[in-house]
Design a protein around this nucleic acid. Structure first.
Lengths: 92, 92
DNA sequence: TTGACATGCAAGTAACCACTTGCCTATGCT
DNA sequence: AGCATAGGCAAGTGGTTACTTGCATGTCAA
């Protein structure tokens, strides 16, 4: 199991999570073009593919292959451990 | 303002946050010895000091100098933006 | 004031990480 | 079959980062 915190450390990966939060079941090329449009990121396909591997290793993204397409979905459940590890303090 | 996500990416820094979550107002040396005891981390004083700088830049740690001691306290409020950015999905 | 203690500063090093580059596999359409 | 599309694999490169090393500053106690 990968490291959720290290997966979140990269800005491009966070932008990918933003995109998947807006729309699930996106392919690699869809994510690439949306990153270029909305975020002005000129990331190559291979770069985004490696980022998706990291996110999937961390459990933040799940993928499913259908035909020649691979669809990616967001999974926010690993984020819960962050709030659990350092819970907010009581406001007096 | 530093990057909260990058601050969380390092395991030693997360251990420091763990220590401060247990006890606030710790000095640099206190944190060093507790890291060595409980977490088995042989980090030098300078390494821990630089980690504290990163955490303070990210707003996760506040420090106050009293005499020749510098006390560090935990601030979990920057963590809220994580849950806000990618909110948990509705469980149907 | 002298010495011990707590911390700060800064340059150098080694490991890691994001990204590229080039080629390969597989699926679907005509 | 032939070709275009979607994606995968792997080695190499540049920049970042964690850590070290050595010295300097500041505080307190005797």
């Amino acid at each position: 199991m990968g490291d959720v915190f290290k997966a979140l450390a990269d800005e491009t990966r966070r932008a990918i999570l933003d995109e998947l939060a807006l729309r699930d079941d996106q392919t690699l090329f869809e994510i690439c073009s949306r990153l270029a449009m909305k975020h002005g990121l000129g990331s190559t396909r291979q770069a985004v593919s490696q980022h998706l591997d990291v996110l999937e290793e961390a459990g933040l993204v799940h993928s499913e292959r259908r035909g020649r397409y691979k669809f990616h979905t967001l999974d926010t459940s690993p984020l819960a451990q962050i709030a659990e590890r350092w819970p907010p303090k009581d406001t007096p």
